[in-house]
Design a protein around this nucleic acid. Structure first.
Lengths: 156, 156
DNA sequence: ATTTTTTCCGTATAAATATACAATAGTTTT
DNA sequence: AAAACTATTGTATATTTATACGGAAAAAAT
């Protein structure tokens, strides 16, 4: 026993990286990796992972991880951009100035746009400085809170 | 015969507006609307609409329209915002100034952000004016082209 | 107008997926 | 440590979905 957890991780990875049309296909791939289970077990695994089956836009269907799992993947890379580039944030009213490492302002600003934090109305990036405009009603504290939630290990 | 097209429209609407777990459920709903078909036909309809079956994040699964169908729906509303608000666009180098009807700058700017036109780096909205910064390498013409593609009936 | 082709759909059945039930191994409680 | 509970799985089967086949209506071609 006590196999499920590792198997779930493998299954998730397989679904993320391959086009898989049905459970039998997945079953075979698993067997090759040393996980010999039945279709019933796999069906339960997929339900646990909240895997969906979606159209390929043509004539077939394949398994896909839930939106969240995918988004968080691409978000991760943007969060990396932010973490790598950012040096400091200071505010004046509802305007903020972010200092970044030289040349990083653009990538950080793009990342902030993509992350679409509700507090930010827009950004303007130079080479090492980003000008941030908060939405009306939002405060510096709101943004910092939001930051901490979305970008775990950022230091104030 | 010649029923399919109208039925597909109805099915699409039903899937968009209701949580539907399986084809039998949909079959019943259709019957109530006067479309009496078999499960086989419905299965074909769903494939045609590229409907997927995704997790509700809890313990069940339901039908969902493909990403594109949903996005284009929400995009429509943003494009409306742009169409309704915009008055003129003028450029100076890689900066643009969009004049909007009073009070509309914000909604137009948000729409532009959401539409994520590849030419636009960022926007700053006042009350009736939006400041647009183009990404490096992009020209006024690129943006106008992109506009025409995304927002059909806009006049120059 | 007749033939050919295409579209649409039902019936029957195959294929794919989910689950009720029972068994076994691990955990927790007493 | 025995009892009670929980988690994980397989077997068998139920449920759900897809499709092979054939027929009929509509459309296109001749």
């Amino acid at each position: 026993m006590r196999e499920r957890h590792t198997r779930l991780t493998v299954v998730k990875e397989m679904i993320k990286n391959n086009r898989i049309d049905n459970q039998d296909m997945l079953l075979e791939m698993l067997k090759k990796e040393g996980f010999t289970v039945t279709q019933a077990t796999l069906s339960r695994d997929l339900k646990m992972l909240k895997v969906g089956k979606i159209s390929d836009g043509w004539s077939g269907y394949y398994y896909a991880l839930p939106e969240n799992d995918l988004i968080s993947e691409s978000e991760k890379s943007y969060m990396q951009d932010v973490r790598r580039g950012i040096l400091s944030i200071e505010f004046s009213g509802n305007f903020g100035v972010i200092k970044t490492r030289s040349g990083h302002a653009n990538s950080v600003a793009i990342a902030l746009d993509v992350l679409a934090l509700p507090e930010i109305l827009g950004t303007l990036a130079g080479d090492d400085t980003i000008f941030v405009i908060l939405r009306e009603g939002m405060t510096k504290e709101d943004l910092q809170e939001s930051f901490k939630n979305r970008i775990p290990d950022i230091q104030e």
